[in-house]
């Protein structure tokens, strides 16, 4: 749940990067941390990574400037993708305002994407959030591997399989090269702020 501090005119929202293990959620945050230095409002914290697996979560605070007189702050989180860390995913989702679902474009990960989306749906339901109502964007990651000749799923196919019913914005991206990492973040922030504006009516108070 976003925090609106009316006195300081500050809005703080929580964005969660969700997706199967190894789909590139942490890489997204690392790219933002390295390349959006003006917006980064604190240290990036990666708790308990075992090798390059995220077992807990990553956290990155951002300051995104002012909109209609309000300071917009976002806290970016990732969830651990591995199946066995379901309770941690549920915990990280608490109070979420917007979600980036990072899907792996590799053909061999097709089923894992679908299972992870189902898992997210169930976890959201558990905490009383309707997947159709929460701001959500899809990111089809690892598109850079196409140039190296690896078998990837086409954008249209991924969008059809994952986004057919939800019909939310979706982006081809490469978190490793940074392609569309910013676009994805802007996409989710736009939806989240529109949603919060409806909820708080903050922009009209000015």
């Amino acid at each position: 749940m976003a925090v609106l501090n009316a006195k300081n005119r500050e809005i703080q929202c929580k964005i969660v990067y969700y997706g199967p293990g190894r789909s590139g959620k942490t890489t997204n945050l690392e790219f933002i941390h390295k390349n959006y230095t003006k917006q980064v409002a604190g240290k990036m914290i990666s708790i308990d990574t075992h090798g390059d697996r995220t077992l807990f979560f990553d956290f990155l605070p951002l300051g995104l400037g002012k909109i209609k007189g309000c300071d917009i702050k976002a806290q970016l989180y990732t969830v651990p993708g591995q199946v066995q860390y379901r309770s941690t995913r549920e915990l990280v989702l608490k109070g979420v305002d917007g979600i980036v679902f990072v899907a792996d474009s590799l053909k061999v990960r097709r089923e894992k994407n679908m299972l992870s989306l189902k898992d997210m749906h169930e976890n959201l339901k558990k905490i009383g959030i309707d997947i159709r109502k929460i701001p959500l964007v899809f990111q089809y990651n690892k598109r850079d591997l196409e140039k190296q000749g690896f078998p990837l799923m086409p954008f249209e196919k991924m969008d059809h399989e994952l986004n057919r019913q939800l019909r939310v914005p979706s982006f081809n991206a490469s978190a490793l090269t940074g392609e569309s990492v910013g676009k994805t973040l802007s996409g989710i922030m736009k939806l989240t702020l529109q949603n919060l504006q409806k909820e708080f009516q903050w922009a009209q108070n000015r």
Partner: peptide, 27 residues
């Protein structure tokens, strides 16, 4: 190795602060 039991890590002050904010107070 990956499936072996992994104990929760010891966390730094910053990490602990980040963990403490996971659950919102209106939960």
């Amino acid at each position: 190795e990956e499936l072996s039991d992994i104990k929760p890590p010891e966390v730094s002050k910053d990490e602990q602060d980040a963990i403490e904010n996971l659950i919102p107070k209106d939960d």
